[in-house]
């Protein structure tokens, strides 16, 4: 893992450099003020490695307890407690160390005031360390969540693309080809017409994703091709009509939307029924909205998962394109035995 290795290196560089600067600063300070003694200097030289040990232990604790995944307030409180806790440990450790090195400790010197002021003094340095490290941890967290969001967005886009591609369903395609094959010997002229319809439909379905919106008239042309092909296949089992207001003809709609709705109508309404039925397509303009309706004989399946992906996909595309202002609705008319899919598309 080359990246984590260099992170590791950077950490140790900062530790040593930081504490080195601290020692240098203190000694220059002592010299400048004329307080320099070898005892004072030793004290600082002992403080640096002890500081490193203590802060490194604290870092291990932060990592093992996943502190940077905690809510911000909780983490800030912990950092505050840590500043004083670590300062106390550092002061106590240093006192013991100097006692061990010098072998004489003046107990009279260790008053409450002395201890308090020393801890406060050390806490300035520890504060800087804790602040830097916690800020670094926070930045890492923000980066990570951003990356995760990007990854999940990307995944969503991929799924969406696959769904869009899958919309011209292969079941229809192979059945249509089979119909054409049958017609080649019984009615060659009609077979030729069917091949033209099929190639127009295929060309459209391969190219539609290049545009975000197309005029309704474009979409109607391929929907007519599609219905004409299904008419060949289902024959007397399928009746269809289109009723389009002239004002709706140029209305921009998402490509393949109407074909998908027509395909759903055939799949659930006509193919599932022995006697067959009808498909009515209607488009009209009302109050700055275009209302597009696909109505077919049949009834909605009670299980919600059966009519899932295709329709959810339509909803999502509409939401993305019209910022929630387009309305999609699917309803059942039990008395008439019809299902109507209706889309209200706002003007752009």
């Amino acid at each position: 893992m080359p990246i984590s290795f260099s992170k590791h290196q950077a950490y140790w560089f900062c530790q040593i450099f930081g504490w080195g600067v601290f020692v240098l600063y203190e000694i220059v300070n002592l010299l400048g003020l004329g307080f320099f003694t070898w005892k004072n200097a030793l004290y600082m030289f002992l403080a640096a490695p002890l500081g490193i040990v203590i802060t490194h232990t604290y870092r291990a604790l932060l990592i093992s307890r996943r502190v940077f995944d905690m809510p911000f307030a909780q983490m800030a409180l912990l950092a505050l407690v840590a500043v004083f806790g670590l300062s106390i440990v550092l002061f106590a450790g240093l006192t013991i160390l100097t006692w061990a090195v010098e072998d004489n400790l003046n107990w009279a010197e260790i008053t409450f005031n002395y201890v308090f002021m020393s801890v406060l003094n050390w806490s300035r340095y520890i504060f800087v360390w804790v602040l830097i490290y916690h800020l670094y941890g926070l930045m890492e967290r923000i980066n990570r969540t951003q990356l995760e969001r990007l990854a999940s967005d990307n995944q969503l886009k991929n799924v969406e693309l696959q769904n869009l591609k899958a919309q011209l369903n292969p079941h229809f395609l192979f059945n249509a080809l089979n119909s054409v094959k049958a017609l080649t010997h019984s009615d060659p002229k009609r077979a030729g017409d069917a091949v033209m319809l099929l190639s127009d439909l295929l060309r459209y379905s391969l190219n539609y994703d290049k545009q975000t919106l197309v005029p309704l008239s474009d979409e109607l042309a391929v929907t007519r091709d599609y219905l004409a092909l299904e008419k060949i296949r289902f024959n007397r089992r399928l009746e269809y009509t289109l009723d389009i207001e002239p004002a709706a003809e140029k209305w921009p709609i998402p490509p393949i939307l109407l074909v998908t709705l027509a395909e759903n109508a055939i799949k659930h309404g006509i193919a599932q029924s022995i006697e067959g039925g009808f498909v009515h397509i209607k488009a009209l303009v009302e109050n700055d909205n275009m209302r597009l309706e696909v109505c077919n004989t049949g009834h909605l399946l009670p299980s919600p998962d059966r009519q899932g992906i295709g329709l959810a996909n339509i909803r999502r595309r509409l939401d993305m394109l019209f910022a929630g202002k387009a309305v999609f609705d699917l309803h059942n008319n039990v008395e008439l035995n019809t299902v109507t899919a209706a889309v209200k598309i706002p003007a752009i």
């Binding site: 119909s179 049958a182 060949i232």
Partner: peptide, 10 residues
């Protein structure tokens, strides 16, 4: 489908 049966017959 009528045409599918017709094709199979053929």
């Amino acid at each position: 489908e009528d045409l599918a049966r017709q094709e199979m017959r053929h």
